[in-house]
Amino acid sequence: MKELENSRRTFLLNSARAVGLAALGGLVWSAYVDEIVASSLTLRPPGALAEEDFLKTCIKCGMCVEACPFDTLTLAKPGDNRPLGTPYFVPREVPCYMCPQIPCVPVCPTNALSEALVSSNGKLDIAKAQMGVAVVDSQNCIAFWGIQCDACYRACPLLGHAITIEYTKNERTGKHAFMKPIVHADICTGCGLCEKACVTEKASIFVLPREVALGKAGDYYIKGWDKNDEKRLENATSEITKTEISKQKAIDSLNDMKGLLDD
C-alpha cells in the first residue's frame, strides 16, 4: 500500500515537473521568437504577402535569393537583427532593379511571394510591386535647399510617375526655382533606386515598409468627390456613444440652464 502511494506520488510529481519545465521552456522560447520577428523595418522582395502572413508562410529556402540576378536579396543571418532566415534587401547597398520577368517570385515554393500580387491581367507586372515606399527628408534633401539635383527623379524606373518634380519659387534669391522631388505613394514600388542614387552622405530619400511610412485616414474621412473612395464606407462600422447630455435634443441641451442658475 505504502509502495503504491509512493509510486502515485512519484508519478504526480514527475508529471508536474514535466509540465512545469515545458511551460518554462515554452515561455522563454515564445518570448524570444516574438521579439525577433518584431523587426518592422525590413524590406521584402516583390510580391511578398503582408508581413504577418509572410513570416508564417516563408520556409526560408533562399530560392528567391538565388533567382535574383543582381544579388539584391539576402537571407537574414544571425547578427543581422532581422527575422532569421527570411529574405530582405537594403536599397542603399543594392536596390531592386525591377526585372520585368520578376525571377524571384515564381520560384517561391510556398507562395510567400505571390505571383497574384505582382500581376495585372494574368501577366507579371513589376510596377504592381509594393515593397515599400520612398520618403523624402525635406530637411536634408539639397533640392529643398534650392540646389539643383534630380538624381532620385532620374533614377526612378517609373520615371515621371512615382516621383515628380514640383517647381516653386525660391523667395530667398527671388529669381530661382526649387525643384522638389515629390513621391506618389500609390505608384512607388519601393525598389530603392532613388535611395541608391541619392547624392547626400546618408540618403535623404529612402524606402520604408509601407505599413511604417503610410498613415491611414480611417472611415471617418471620405473624399466625397471621389466615387471610388465612397466605396470604403460599405465596410465601415459605426458605433454610437451616448452620454448624459446626448440624451436631450441638441437645442434643449444648449438651452439647458440647469447648473447655471443653481447658486
Partner: peptide, 16 residues
C-alpha cells in the same frame, strides 16, 4: 502564429 522552431533552429542556421 509563426513556425516556432524554424526561427531558433541551429540546424537551419548551419545549413543556411
Amino acid at each position: 502564429g509563426v513556425a516556432a522552431f524554424e526561427f531558433v533552429s541551429p540546424v537551419a542556421m548551419v545549413h543556411r
